[in-house]
Amino acid sequence: MIALIIRRSYQSVVVMLVVALLAFTMFRYVGDPVSMMVGQDTSLEQREAMRVSLGLKDPVPVQFARFVMNTAQGEFGISYQLGRPVAEILSERVPATLELSLVAALFAMLVGIPMGVYTALHPQKWLSKAFLTISLVGISLPTFLIGILLILFFGVLLNWLPTFGRGEVVMLGGWSTGFLSGSGVKSLLMPAFTLGMFQLTLIMRLVRSEMMEVLLTDYIKFARARGLSNKAVNFGHALKNTLVPVITITGLQIGNIVAFATITESVFQWPGVGLMFIQAIGLVDIPIMSAYLVLVALFFVIINLIVDILYHVVDPRLRVDGSGAHG
C-alpha cells in the first residue's frame, strides 16, 4: 500500500510538472508580461529595467525552474488587473468553490447511488421508471439552463432562495465558510443542486447498469442458493461489487465538478475560483489563469490518488501481497 502511494505520487509529480510547463508557457509567451503590467507612458528603459528585475532576461530553463519553485510555494505572481498577489485572491476564493463542490458531490453520491440501487433491484416498479425519466432530463438539459430555471422559480417567482452570491460567510481561521449562517446555507442550495444534478444522473445510471450486471453473476446466484437473506445478497454482495467500477468514474466526476463549477459559478455569481477564471479570461489576466490551471490539475491529481487507494482497499485482487494462487 505504501509502495503504491509512493509510486503514484511520483506519477503525480510528473503530471504536475507538465501542467506547470503549460502554465509557464502561457504566462511567459501569451502576450508580453511587462506591457501587461505597465502603463502606456512607461519609457523603454523602465520597461527594460523591469524585464531584468522580473528575471525575464534569464535563460528559459532557469525561468521555468523559478516558476516551479514559486508555484510549489503557492507564489503565483501578481494579478495584472487587481494588482494583488494571486495567492491572496485564491485563498479568498478557493473555500467557496470547495464548499460548493463538496456539497454538490455529496448530493450526487448520496442521492444517486441509492436511486441507482433501487432502479436496479426493482426495474419494473413505476418509481424506477420515474427516476429514469427524470435522469434523462438531468443528463440532457444543460447546466446553465437548469440554473436559470431554478433562479426563475425559487428566486424570482417564489422568492424563497437568494439568486446570487454566497450569503453571509463566517471566517474560521483563514477559511470562509457559508455552512454556519442561514443565508449561507440557503445560498448554497440552488448552485449545489445545479452542479450536482448532472453527476447525480450519471452516477445513478452507472450504478444501475453495473448492479444489474452483477445481479446476474454466478456468485450472486450461489449466494442465494446458500440461503443468505435478500439484504445480505443485495447490499453485502451485489452492492460492494457494483461499487468497484463506480468509484473510478465517481472520482473523476468529482474532479469534473471542481473544474466545471465555472458554469454554475457564473450563473449564480458564486464568488469561487471558477468565476474568477472566467473573469480573468475576459481581462487576459494571465497569472490568475495559470494559477487556476495548476490548481485544477492539483485537484485532479489528488482525487486520482484517493481513487487509486480506495480501489485497492475495495478490491483484494489488486493487492499484490506475494501469495498468489497455489494449492
Binding site: 454466478d218 456468485y219 450461489f222 442458493a225 446458500r226 440461503g227 437473506s229 435478500n230 478490491d315 483484494p316
Partner: peptide, 25 residues
C-alpha cells in the same frame, strides 16, 4: 424457501471460478 436453501438443500454450481464473491475472503 430461503431458509430451506443452504440449511436443508445445499447447492454446488458448475464454475468454481465465478461461484465465489471475489471481494470477500
Amino acid at each position: 424457501m430461503r431458509k430451506i436453501r443452504g440449511k436443508r438443500i445445499g447447492a454446488i454450481f458448475q464454475d468454481p471460478l465465478t461461484s465465489l464473491n471475489p471481494l470477500y475472503t
